[in-house]
C-alpha cells in the first residue's frame, strides 16, 4: 500500500545563479502512513518547519526544491496552482505556532472557521456553521455559539489555538500538519492542547506530522520520531526505543540531556553548541 505522504530525497536551496547557493535541506526522506503520527524534533534552524511547509508547497517562493513529495501518490511539486489550492483546502490541515499572529484579527471567529465555504451555496454555508459549532464543542470550547461572534483578540492564546485546530479539521483533512502548536502556550495549556490533538486524530484516523523541539512530548504523542539536525534526518526512533534508551545518534542523546528533569538537581542545563555534530556520526 502506498503511504499517505512520501517525502523522497527532498533538497531545498536558496540563491543560485549569480548568488551564493545555500542549501538548507539535504535529502530528507520519510513516509507517513494513513492514520500514523510522526513527530519531527530538532533545534531551531534544523529544517523542521521548511520540511513541513514544503509538503503543501508553502516554502518561500525564492527557494528551489529538488526531490519529490507525494501525497496519496500524487506529486506535490508537479501540481498546478489550482490543484495545490484544493490539496491545501480539502486534504491537509495546518496548525501554526502563534495563534494570535496566524489568525487574521479583523474577522470574527465564525467567519474564520467557515471561510473556505464562502464560495459555496447557501446550504453548504449553513452546514459549515453547524459544523463549526460542533468542532468548537469537540475542541472543548464552552459556549461555542458566543465564540463564533467573537474577534480573535477577545480570546486567550489557548482558546485561539483550539479554534485553529477546529479550523484545520473543518473539511475533514486526511493529514494534519502541526508546526510547534504548543510553543506559544503556557505549560498547562500545552498539555491540554497536545491531549486534544491526540484524541481528535485518533477518533478520525487522521495522519499527523507534529513538529516540536520537545523530544519527550513527541515520544508521548507519536508513533514514530524523526530527529532532524542541520537539514538532515539523523535518526528515526519509535517511542519504545526512545524510552528504552536505544539511541544511536549523539545529537539525539544531547537533545534528551537538554531537558530539565524534576528528579535531578542541576545548576545548569547543558546546551548544544552550534555545529557540534557536524561530522556526522562521530561521537564527541
Amino acid at each position: 500500500m502506498t503511504p499517505l505522504l512520501q517525502v523522497d530525497d527532498l533538497h531545498l536551496t536558496f540563491g543560485g545563479r549569480d548568488r551564493q547557493e545555500q542549501r538548507l535541506l539535504h535529502g530528507v526522506s520519510f513516509t507517513v502512513a494513513a492514520g500514523e503520527a510522526v513527530g519531527i524534533v530538532g533545534e531551531s534552524g534544523s529544517g523542521k518547519t521548511l520540511t513541513l511547509r514544503a509538503i503543501t508547497a508553502l516554502h518561500p517562493p525564492n527557494a528551489r526544491i529538488d526531490g519529490d513529495i507525494r501525497f496519496d501518490g500524487l506529486s506535490v511539486p508537479a501540481m498546478s496552482p489550482r490543484e495545490l489550492t484544493r490539496l491545501r483546502r480539502d486534504h491537509v490541515g495546518m496548525v501554526f505556532q502563534d495563534p494570535h499572529a496566524a489568525i487574521n484579527p479583523v474577522h470574527r471567529i465564525g467567519d474564520y472557521l467557515t471561510e473556505t465555504y464562502r464560495k459555496d451555496g447557501r446550504k453548504q454555508r449553513r452546514d459549515a456553521t453547524t459544523r463549526a459549532l460542533e468542532l468548537l464543542h469537540q475542541v472543548r470550547i464552552k459556549d461555542p455559539a458566543r465564540i463564533l461572534g467573537c474577534f480573535p483578540h477577545e480570546l486567550s492564546g489557548g482558546m485561539l489555538q483550539r479554534v485553529m485546530i477546529a479550523a484545520a479539521l473543518m473539511r475533514g483533512p486526511r493529514l494534519l500538519l502541526a508546526d510547534e502548536p504548543t510553543t506559544a502556550l503556557d505549560v498547562t495549556t500545552q498539555a491540554e492542547v497536545v491531549a486534544l490533538i491526540a484524541d481528535l486524530r485518533r477518533d478520525r484516523g487522521t495522519s499527523l506530522v507534529f513538529i516540536t523541539h520537545d523530544i519527550e512530548l513527541v515520544g508521548a504523542l507519536c508513533d514514530r520520531i524523526l530527529v532532524m539536525y542541520r537539514g538532515r534526518i539523523v535518526e528515526q526512533l519509535t517511542p519504545a526505543q526512545l524510552h528504552g534508551g536505544e539511541i544511536s545518534h549523539p545529537y539525539t542523546a544531547a537533545l534528551l540531556a537538554c531537558r530539565p528533569d524534576v528528579t535531578r538537581r542541576r545548576d545548569r542545563l547543558p546546551a548544544i553548541a552550534a555545529g557540534a555534530f557536524e561530522e556526522g556520526w562521530a561521537v564527541q
Partner: peptide, 10 residues
C-alpha cells in the same frame, strides 16, 4: 503570518 495561514487553508 495570517496571510500564510490563509494560503495554507486553500
Amino acid at each position: 503570518d495570517h496571510v500564510t495561514t490563509a494560503v495554507a487553508r486553500g
